[in-house]
Amino acid sequence: MTFPIAMSSQPDIQQDQPAYRVERSSVHGNGVFARRDIAPGERIIEYAGREITWEEAQIRAEIQGGPHNHTFFFSLANGNVIDGGDHGNEARFINHSCEPNCEAIEEEDGRIFIYALHEIRRDEELSYSYPLIYEGRHTPAIKKAFACRCGAATCTGTMLAPKPRKRKPKVKPEPGLFADPVPALATVQSPQPAAAG
């Protein structure tokens, strides 16, 4: 014998479930997909993991055979790193995109959360932009290992952040030789934003 259940007494399953699921991605490996429609500005998931020093992150990368696991490292404003591969969660599977639908924000307490930049439809893959900082030479093999496959119209082709260019010091002319008769205007440079991940 079965008993009918009134629909109004059932909890809203959509609210009880996470807004995301992990499955194979056409972009790269596993990806995170919207289980339901996600509103603009909605907090979706925390980027969880063990907080370690940058030095410890470098040691872990060497032990694991190189820079390829850096995609699980998330830099914090305090100089430390969250290692999503150590006590992490599904957020570590969110793929990079040059046209992301999410952004990662570090809260005042040092925790990282992923927020929707705009409305995300059910079954759409979640993505955010994380130019990876790789201090070694950007050899063809490294560039290939960190190739971007997001498919966006504005895709840069790489997940690597550009290396900062070293400026050559300007040689000042000797007094009287090639002197500029009009003094040059001073330019104001704003500080570069800190790397997010």
Rank of each mutant, 00 (worst) to 15 (best):
I38Y: 04
I38C: 04
I38T: 03
P40R: 01
E42C: 03
E42T: 06
E42Y: 08
R43H: 05
R43P: 10
R43E: 15
R43S: 13
I45C: 06
E46S: 10
Y47W: 10
A48R: 15
A48V: 07
R50P: 00
R50T: 15
T53W: 10
W54N: 11
A57Q: 05
Q58F: 00
Q58M: 13
I59K: 14
R60K: 14
A61C: 11
I63T: 12
I63Q: 14
I63G: 00
Q64N: 14
G65M: 08
G66K: 03
P67C: 04
H68I: 12
H68Y: 11
N69E: 07
N69S: 11
H70C: 12
T71N: 09
T71D: 07
F72W: 13
F73Q: 01
F74C: 14
S75I: 01
L76W: 02
N78L: 06
N78I: 05
N78Q: 08
N78G: 09
N78E: 08
N78S: 15
G79K: 10
N80D: 14
N80I: 01
N80Q: 13
N80P: 03
V81G: 06
I82E: 02
I82Y: 03
D83A: 11
D83E: 09
G84T: 07
G84A: 11
G84E: 07
G84I: 07
G85E: 04
G85D: 11
H87D: 14
G88E: 07
G88T: 06
N89E: 08
N89I: 06
E90Q: 14
A91D: 04
A91Q: 03
A91H: 02
A91I: 02
A91N: 03
R92N: 07
I94P: 01
N95C: 08
H96A: 10
H96C: 09
C98K: 04
E99I: 01
E99M: 09
N101Q: 05
N101G: 08
C102M: 08
E103H: 11
A104E: 00
I105E: 12
E106S: 05
E106K: 04
E106T: 05
E107V: 01
D109S: 11
R111M: 12
I112N: 01
F113K: 06
A116P: 07
L117D: 08
H118M: 09
H118F: 08
R121G: 10
R121A: 15
R121Q: 14
R122Y: 00
D123R: 13
E124C: 03
L126D: 01
L126Q: 04
L126E: 04
Y128I: 04
S129E: 15
P131M: 13
L132P: 00
I133L: 13
Y134R: 00
Y134M: 10
Y134V: 11
E135F: 06
R137D: 15
H138M: 06
H138N: 08
P140D: 01
P140G: 02
A141S: 13
A141C: 00
A141F: 03
I142C: 02
A147M: 10
R149S: 11
